[in-house]
Every structure is written in structure tokens, then in C-alpha cells.
Design a protein around this nucleic acid. Structure first.
Lengths: 334, 334
DNA sequence: TTGTAGGCGTTATCAG
DNA sequence: CTGATAACGCCTACAA
């Protein structure tokens, strides 16, 4: 069923049908009704692809996120809110999961696939794993989040790690902690490196001494966190407080602590990162540094839209983390 | 940059370029090289929309999942594995989150949008919230999962709840439990109704008496689980074991238990549903009934592909749940 | 206000 | 084996 068939049945030309569909005002109301009746009757829906082709606009944007096989809930929320924002503005979303772990060039492959689909813009929310994209010839607007250096021609949602880390560390220092450890993800992930740098910077600003042995580099996964905290606990002088690179790792750490008969918020202070919903439901509830997927997704989409529409006055793109106090911190223990 | 431009630069006709792109064997190797050189040089990529239009095939499928604002990790995994399966077969995926909670017709809206995009098929993995689709005029192959009654013309990944519930209940009865409760999601969600029915059936088969008061109907969310278990605990004679409609609710329940100084696996037996990664990291680790998003997604995509390709011999579509024993169960306590 | 003709970028059918 | 030519379904001047 196409526009010409409708035209035939409504005894008008197909351009008139086109006008009715596109709500052009100058059509005789009588014809409008006649055409709409036919459209209703046959349940006609315009072919989006043909329309996109003719108009030269696909009304589709691409979203690339990191594939995390373990199922990190963070990205599911990013996707949800990005999609919602897009649909609100009449855009459809093409999603790709970039396997950044085992195939560093996969991001570029995904982006290329999207370009073939004529997306009008791409948001690569892979937090630093988008370097590959810099070289690949993408000629649509792009938005990154948390890229470590500003790249030419792409907008970057800057992530200000400082407020969150600063307040978390202040909170711990107020408790009297001197040995503050950090459970990092692999530094090869640039998001992990950036978070770690945020931590170091905040430590320095707080006048807290940085001790290299108190940093454990593991996977930013449930299991990684479980292993990482072990490394820290096995130190001759283990830290009395630990900040984690994300909540998932922190939850893993909680597990190990429990297995050792320790409890966060009593025997050791533990702070996560992300503020996933689950933080409220761990035992004890996990204090964390908020990094809202929802805000991030909205921010990224808005920026992308501005690029696409070539809006001049662009909104400032900074996401500020903040510390969320719950129950997993405490004073250092003798 | 289009096929004609390439043709001009390679001094061939655009049909030849098309043949090269589509790897038609009968093209003079000399021309192939010439054309490919130009393609390389200008970084040309074919326009997918135009191609879809000309071929009459979009190579795109739709995936509709339930929007769960809290960020249920289950769906993120469904999306991930569905997308992966699709890309492997050369399909792109259009994703919609259906707001089944507040807008019952939203599923149909999503499906309609997808149809305009010429998807070749739609998988609606909303577990029973797809009734609205039955009426709406979708004329592409559809696949459901866990629809409660088989609908005409759509394939349904049947979910066999019995093995999981059966073994869980057997396990509990072996421990000596007589009062087995159930923490349900809202029965208006047909998936929740179906799970509940699976539970009842398994109870009956196990010869366990069904007591209505031991069933709490709440939200299948973290908070819902936290509240629901309270209702059960407040009963004059509370259950000694509780099965939950999903892991997220079970984790919520764990929180309430902890707040009351109770511990699953010691004071009460608790069993979840889904087998999210987090089950291994709760304290205690959550015994659960496995309902793998990965398998489900693959199964659904395979079925969709069979419909699209009109394959005759169709694979059987049944997903069998199974009980996973961890640490959250125990003998009933006096 | 309406209809005709041409084009969007590709594939597909035919002669040559 | 190659190259015109006509689709695919829609939009949009331009002409009537």
C-alpha cells in the first residue's frame, strides 16, 4: 500500500495525498477528509525510508554504549533515557553495543554501520573508549561523554569527578581516616583512568597522602571488585577506607568482606560510584558518588540535537558528580 | 557521495558500481579494482535506506521491551543479546521501551512506529503486556515471550515455569517447610500472573497446601519486594520460606529482613527468580530460579528470523526454568 | 488549490 | 560483461 494507491482510491493525485499526510494547510478540506478516510480504511502508514530518502533526513540517531557482558545496569538506564529523549523529539534510536574489551576497533565498526543507516548524529557513551572514532571517517555530528581530552569537532559531555570525590574524601577524613584506598578498574579503560585521576586530584586537594600500594587495579565488574578488595585487605597495613571505581565492583567487594566476617560501615568504610538503584538495597546501604545515567543520557542527547540542528548557543556540557551518604562508611577501626 | 559519483570517477556506469558493491561475480576484475580504489579513496558507504527501498527489504527488526524505570538489569541483557544475535545475521535492531505501566496502548504505538520504519519483524518481549498488539494492525511477523495464551499468527516463546518452581519447592519441602509463601508482582502484569500460576501449579504437584494469605501482591521492584516481605512477616503465622516473583524484589526483601535483624538462609528461606548476576553477590547469595535473558533473547531472535525467512521446520520454542541453589535457603525455624 | 514531472540513492531488468 | 532504463515510495518545485 503506497501513496499512489491511496491517491487512486481517493480519486486525487498522489501529491495531494502527500500534502494531506504532511498536513499542508492549503488543501481543500473536502479532499482532506476523503483522503484521510481512505488512509484510515486501508490502515496506510507512510514508508519512513522512502520519506527519509526523499527528504534527505533520516530522523534517526545512533547510540553506542560499551558492552558489558555481566550486565551492568548503568547502561540499561542510559539507553532507556536516551531513547526516551529521542522519541520525544521525533527521533528513532539505533543502538550498538561496542565490544570495547576484546575488539578495540569495534566502536568504529558500529559507527560505520550507523552511518550507512544515515543517522544524523551519533552519541558514543563509551567513556573514553572512543579514541578509535577520532580517526575513522565519520561525517555526522558526534557527542562523547567523559572523553579525556577534548577532540576536535565533537562535543564532549565533561564529567566533573571532583565534587563527588572531594566530598567523599572529606567525609572520610572527618571520620579520621588516614589510609584511604582505591579500587580501580583497568586503567586501559580511559574512563577508569579518568576516575582514578579524579580520585588522586581530590586526595591531593584534601591534603591526604597518596600511597600507591593502596590502589588496586582490577576489573570493574562484580568479580573484579570481589578480588580487588582482597588484594587491599591482604596488605600488611590495609586501608581503613576504600573508594571503588563503580558500584558493581563495590557490591563485589561487599561480598568478599562478608566472607571474611567484615562489614562495611563497621569494620571498614566503603564508597561506590554511579549510584545504581541497588545501592539502596545492599547490606549496608552503599554510600556512593552519584553519576546519573539519566542526566547523562539527557545531556548527551540534547547536545547531539544541538549539533544536528546547528543551534548556535549551546548548553554547557558538564555533569557534576556528587557524594551520596548512606550507611557503608564509619570511623577507622583499630 | 553516491553510486553515480563513484561511477563517474571510475569511468564506469553506476550499475557496474552497484555490482561491485554487491559482489556480483561476473564483473571484470580490472573494473572491480578500479571501482574499489575509488570507493576506498572517497570513503564511500552505500546508503542503507535507498538500498532498502530498492530491495524492498529493510534488514531491520524491532525489539520492544518493558520500560522499568528503576532499571531492571534483566532487560539490558535481553537487549544486548538480542542485538548481538541480530547483527550476526546482518540485521539492525530498533528498540522501544514500552511504558506498559501507565500507558497500556503504548506497546501498539511502538509497534506502529516500527512498522513505518519497515521492520521485517517485531519481537515484543514484554511478557504478557502485548495483548494490545493483538488488535492493532501489524502485518509483519511477530514473536512474543511468555504470552499467556497462544495467539494466532504470532510465535510465542513458551516459558515453562514448572521445572524451576518444582525443584525449588521440592528443595524447600525437603528442608521441612510447610508454610511456603509467595511474593508476587501485580497480577495485572500478565507475566506476574503467569509466574504465580506456575508457583501454584508446582505447589499442587508437590502436594503442598496452598494458603492464600501467604501470597503478597506488591510491585516487582526493589521497593515492592521490601514492602511485600513486610506484609508476610507481619502475619500472625508468617511463612517459613518465600519465593519471589523476581530477583529484584528478592533483593528488596533481603533489605527488609536485615532491617528486622533476620537473615535469609538462617531465619527464613528466600528464593528469587531470574538469576541476575547480582544473585551471586547478595549476602547471603540468593538461590533463585533461572530465567536467562540471554537464552530468551537468542530464542526470540531465532524464531523471528524463521518467521521472516518463512522457514518451514521451526525450532521448538520453550524456555525451561531451573532452580539454582545458593545460600539463601535453610530449614524452617521454630 | 491541484496535478505533472523529476529526483532522492539504490537495485534489477534488459538489450547490446 | 556492461550500460541504459525503469522501478522502489515519497517529496517538491513548477505549471495549470
Amino acid at each position: 500500500m503506497n501513496i499512489r494507491e491511496i491517491a487512486k482510491r481517493a480519486r486525487v493525485s498522489h501529491s495531494t495525498v502527500s500534502r494531506v499526510i504532511n498536513q499542508v494547510e492549503t488543501v481543500d478540506p473536502k479532499l482532506v477528509r476523503r483522503v484521510q478516510a481512505v488512509i484510515q480504511e486501508v490502515g496506510y502508514r507512510p514508508n519512513f525510508q522512502a520519506r527519509a530518502l526523499a527528504r534527505g533526513r533520516s530522523h534517526t540517531v545512533g547510540l553506542i554504549v560499551s558492552e558489558l557482558s555481566g550486565g551492568n545496569p548503568f547502561f540499561s538506564e542510559v539507553i532507556l533515557y536516551f531513547e526516551r529523549a529521542a522519541v520525544e523529539q521525533g527521533y528513532e534510536v539505533l543502538i550498538s553495543f561496542a565490544d570495547t574489551e576484546t575488539r578495540p576497533d569495534h566502536v568504529a565498526v558500529c559507527a560505520a554501520r550507523m552511518q550507512e543507516r544515515q543517522v544524523e548524529g551519533i552519541a558514543a557513551l563509551t567513556f573514553g573508549m572512543e579514541e578509535q572514532l577520532a580517526n575513522s571517517a565519520i561525517d555526522v555530528p558526534m557527542v562523547y561523554a567523559g572523553a579525556d581530552h577534548d577532540l576536535q569537532g565533537v562535543r564532549n559531555v565533561r564529567i566533573n569527578y571532583l565534587p563527588g570525590f572531594r566530598d567523599a574524601i572529606k567525609h572520610l577524613k572527618d571520620f579520621g581516616h588516614e589510609r584511604i584506598g582505591y579500587l580501580s578498574g583497568q586503567m586501559s579503560w580511559s574512563s577508569m583512568k579518568t576516575r582514578f585521576e579524579g580520585f588522586r586530584k581530590a586526595m591531593k586537594l584534601a591534603g591526604a597522602p597518596f600511597e600507591k600500594e593502596l590502589v588496586a587495579e582490577c576489573d570493574h565488574t562484580w568479580d573484579g571488585g570481589a578480588q580487588g578488595i582482597s588484594m587491599l585487605l591482604n596488605l600488611p597495613k590495609p586501608p581503613t577506607a576504600v573508594l571503588c571505581c563503580n558500584d558493581v565492583a563495590a557490591v563485589g567487594a561487599l561480598k568478599t568482606l562478608a566472607a571474611r566476617g567484615l562489614q562495611a560501615g563497621r569494620d571498614i568504610a566503603l564508597v561506590g560510584f554511579d549510584d545504581l538503584t541497588i545501592c539502596r538495597f545492599t547490606q549496608p546501604a552503599l554510600s556512593t558518588i552519584q553519576f546519573s545515567p539519566r542526566e547523562l543520557a539527557s545531556l548527551a542527547f540534547r547536545a547531539l540535537l544541538e549539533e544536528i540542528q546547528e543551534v548556535q548557543k549551546k548548553t554547557s556540557l558538564e555533569y557534576k558528580t556528587r557524594f551520596i551518604l548512606r550507611e557503608s562508611t564509619c570511623a577507622p577501626r583499630a
